[in-house]
Design a protein around this nucleic acid. Structure first.
Lengths: 219, 219
DNA sequence: GTCTATAATGGGATAGAC
DNA sequence: GTCTATCCCATTATAGAC
């Protein structure tokens, strides 16, 4: 019974920590690491500052936890490109869709990660090195296998991947500017659908074997 | 002679302010607005904190000045798309090149601007609304004139522009992550050339009239 | 685990001499 | 315009009662 009690407490603690982290990711995204005060996070989460610090002893610990969860969720969705056996066009379409979905559903996660990278990844470079880079390299290898097999055009796989990331992630990171251009308060589902079409078309055109004007003019 | 003195002083003052701003843009890019202390900027610029505050009475004034200069320089390079009369392909190639050049030469400017937008542009939304959005709208109109004239394929002009921005700007903003993937300390000129090729190919493919496999197989 | 109180630091900003 | 000195506040973090 004491074990039950302990388990319950642990469960509650995990749940509470997850809730705090879920609040914190929004605050970090809006104000940056230094601009975020733990008092603000605590208030938004409905507890006292000192109570929050019982769960997360320092601000850095909270921030690292937030980044860890961001990366976990991001990596969970990015496994789709792992299989070289599938149809390249279908895989890439799904990949773009998954990344856009992530931008739409987790804009704060994307923004916190973006700010960390823009700052030079001072606190998270190690994790990027050990968790992100290997996955990227694997994706690049898949591209290169496709190229070697003549299934897609010989593009620069690394930069194509960079391009896909940039295009999809920008719908989370730069949505404030996009909304101003589109004259809305925030982006709509239709905006994401429009984006998907443009991005998928560009990516598929990039891997299509004859991208240059073919000499079709048979006399 | 007193006028000469005054003019000299004004010149020196302008020059000194510009130097301070040039230092500040790097610090803001690295640490964000809140993470930047004016003492750090002053130290890097080689003067005392109090002396810096003689030229920039508050931190916000310094930040706004930095953003103003960033935007000035950015807008100065983005006029290239303004002329609908020119060849679309040449214009877009030049546009991508100009944006990549900016990312390579002014990475800190790009990063400061990016962080401001990611945070929701709390301090600069007004300027973006009044200075950036009109220019963007004009560029989109140029696209749409081209489409109406049948000179390029009927793409979604707004999202194509978003895509170009995202792809080119990411080489400044996310260079830390890219460098990790590419296993270098920092991006090289060749990396930017490779990027240019991939991006230009994608953009040109997107505006090419028959992006889908043409039925060339004349029997 | 949650509370009150408080230490300790850092940093923005001001005053005034020179 | 530049310097020394200082104020003031926000914020992180800790100590200890309950």
């Amino acid at each position: 019974m004491s074990t039950v009690k302990i388990n319950r407490r642990l469960l509650n603690r995990d749940k509470l920590e997850a809730e705090i982290a879920a609040v914190a990711v929004r605050v970090f995204a809006e104000f940056g690491y230094e601009g975020t005060s733990i008092a603000t996070v605590a208030e938004q989460a409905g507890l006292s500052k000192q109570n929050l610090m019982y769960y997360f002893p320092t601000k850095q610990v909270l921030y690292q936890r937030v980044l860890d969860e961001v990366l976990d969720e991001w990596l969970a969705r990015m496994e789709s490109l792992a299989d070289a056996a599938q149809d390249p066009r279908a895989v890439l379409r799904a990949y773009v869709q998954a990344k856009l979905k992530f931008s739409r559903e987790n804009p704060w996660a994307s923004r916190v990660y973006a700010m960390e990278v823009i700052s030079g990844a001072p606190l998270y470079g190690g994790q990027i090195q050990s968790r992100v880079v290997p996955l990227v390299r694997k994706d690049i290898e898949v591209f290169e296998q496709w190229i070697a097999a003549g299934r897609i055009a010989p593009v620069n796989a690394t930069h194509l991947l960079f391009a896909i990331w940039a295009m999809t992630q920008s719908y989370a990171d730069f949505s404030a500017q996009m909304a101003l251009v589109l004259n809305r308060k925030q982006l709509t589902k239709k905006d994401f659908d429009d984006a998907e079409k443009v991005i998928v078309d560009m990516v598929l055109a990039a891997i299509t074997v004859q991208p240059q004007l073919p000499s079709c003019d048979v006399p």
